[in-house]
Amino acid sequence: MQIFVKTLTGKTITLEVEPSDTIENVKAKIQDKEGIPPDQQRSIFAGKQLEDGRTLSDYNIQKESTLHLVLR
């Protein structure tokens, strides 16, 4: 499925993911596309910070959902 990741600069990245993917996985995909190390990424969805060990389905993130990426 496709999800979108919006950065603070307003750029939107499209990722191909599975509901079973962990947040860690997703951060690795963002690193592949953007070169941002996962330890600098904070992902926010529906106002909640997403934890690395959880999966997209844990957070009820579905296709075409938009995550927000904040850098630390």
Rank of each mutant, 00 (worst) to 15 (best):
M1A: 02
Q2H: 12
Q2G: 03
Q2L: 14
I3F: 00
I3M: 00
F4W: 06
F4D: 01
F4Q: 04
V5E: 00
V5P: 00
K6L: 11
T7G: 05
T7I: 14
T7L: 15
L8Q: 12
T9S: 13
G10T: 02
G10F: 03
K11H: 10
T12R: 07
T12C: 12
I13S: 00
I13F: 13
I13H: 04
T14K: 08
T14V: 13
T14M: 12
T14G: 04
L15K: 01
L15S: 03
E16M: 12
E16K: 08
E16S: 11
V17R: 01
E18T: 13
E18M: 14
P19M: 11
P19A: 09
P19H: 04
S20I: 05
S20F: 09
D21G: 03
D21A: 06
D21Q: 06
D21I: 05
T22V: 03
T22S: 07
T22K: 06
I23D: 01
I23A: 01
E24G: 13
E24W: 15
E24L: 14
E24F: 14
N25P: 01
N25G: 08
N25R: 14
N25L: 13
V26N: 01
V26W: 01
V26D: 03
K27H: 09
K27Y: 09
K27C: 11
K27G: 03
K27T: 06
K27Q: 05
K27L: 14
A28G: 07
A28R: 15
A28Y: 12
A28N: 11
K29P: 03
K29L: 10
I30E: 03
I30C: 04
I30W: 03
I30L: 08
I30D: 01
I30P: 01
Q31A: 14
Q31Y: 15
Q31I: 07
D32N: 10
D32M: 13
D32F: 11
D32C: 10
K33F: 09
K33E: 09
K33W: 11
K33P: 06
K33Y: 11
K33D: 07
E34K: 04
G35K: 06
G35E: 05
G35S: 05
I36V: 10
I36L: 08
I36Y: 13
I36P: 07
I36N: 05
P37C: 08
P37S: 11
P37K: 10
P38D: 10
P38V: 15
P38I: 15
D39M: 09
Q40P: 07
Q40C: 12
Q40R: 10
Q40N: 10
Q41R: 04
Q41F: 15
Q41L: 14
R42D: 14
R42A: 15
R42M: 15
R42V: 15
R42Y: 15
S43A: 15
S43D: 08
S43R: 05
I44H: 07
I44K: 03
I44R: 02
I44M: 12
F45N: 04
F45A: 04
F45H: 07
F45K: 01
A46S: 09
A46Q: 13
A46D: 12
A46C: 12
A46K: 13
A46R: 13
G47A: 04
G47H: 07
K48S: 10
K48L: 12
K48C: 09
Q49P: 12
Q49M: 13
Q49S: 11
Q49Y: 15
L50N: 01
E51T: 05
E51G: 03
D52Y: 05
D52M: 04
D52W: 04
D52V: 03
D52G: 05
D52N: 09
G53S: 12
G53F: 11
G53H: 14
G53I: 06
G53M: 10
R54G: 07
R54E: 03
R54D: 04
R54A: 09
R54Q: 09
R54K: 14
T55W: 02
T55C: 02
T55N: 03
L56I: 10
L56Q: 02
L56R: 00
L56E: 02
L56V: 06
S57W: 08
S57N: 10
S57A: 14
D58Q: 07
D58R: 00
D58N: 03
Y59P: 02
Y59F: 04
Y59T: 00
N60E: 07
N60P: 01
N60S: 06
I61L: 03
I61F: 02
I61G: 01
Q62G: 12
Q62F: 08
Q62R: 09
K63M: 09
K63T: 11
K63D: 13
E64L: 12
S65H: 06
T66Q: 05
T66P: 00
T66D: 02
T66V: 13
T66Y: 07
T66H: 14
L67D: 00
H68W: 14
H68M: 12
H68Q: 10
H68Y: 14
L69E: 06
L69R: 00
L69C: 05
V70L: 11
V70F: 12
V70M: 09
L71S: 09
L71K: 08
L71I: 12
L71R: 08
R72G: 11
R72D: 11
R72V: 14
R72N: 12
R72F: 12
R72E: 11
R72Q: 12
